[in-house]
Amino acid sequence: MLECKDATKKYMGKVAVDRMNLTVEKGRIYALLGPNGSGKTTLMKMVAGLVKPTEGVVTYNKIPIGIESKRKVAYMSTEPFYYNYMNIADVGKYYADFFEDFSTEKYAQLIERMNLRTQDKVKSLSSGMAAKLKIAATLSRKAELILLDEPLNGIDIIAREQIITTIVESANDENALVVSSHLVDELEKIIDYAVFMKEGNLVMQGDAEEMRAERGMSIVELYKRIYA
């Protein structure tokens, strides 16, 4: 469904993503792993259509990223991005206005599960609550490809379990999830495929189970070996 062919992004000559080749297929949860500055966010933004590749192409169902892909791809950024005037209910209405695959009922359920209140102003939320809101809004879309950039950032250990459960529940044979995080141990148990990035380059990728079997170590240990 998603294909990156030599996708490159340079900012004023500085390479953020370098000739990235990656294919994402339905029915899997992908972990996009790497330390800060490895290019994970830039790659996700290219897929979401927020960043234009300097070279190479990114296609979704063989069509370059654009309006059609934005209908099918849900992206959750690391930073909060909702308008300041909005409350939690307004965020749901906004998504319902623009995304045909958004489920108001699922949003209401997730908001309740995350212990959020619809009348609360977005700008008054703590970082943990804001992170939960982003997750709830993004996962309320029945998108074919869901990109979650550092979904566990700013989340306490108890809420992390809640979020991991919500992510796993959203995965099915009809969609693919790409989750970036440097909290690898939290992702280890849920991922099907791991992609390791370093300084904008793809250093390793493969089926998580095969990687563990071939190398005789967990994804966490592999992560430590690559980046230590």
Binding site: A48, G49, G66, S77, E79, F81, Y83, N84
Partner: peptide, 13 residues
């Protein structure tokens, strides 16, 4: 600002 995502993530040209 990051609020740009609100506009440019929507399926609108």
């Amino acid at each position: 600002t990051k609020q740009s995502y609100m506009l440019f993530l929507t399926p609108k040209s």
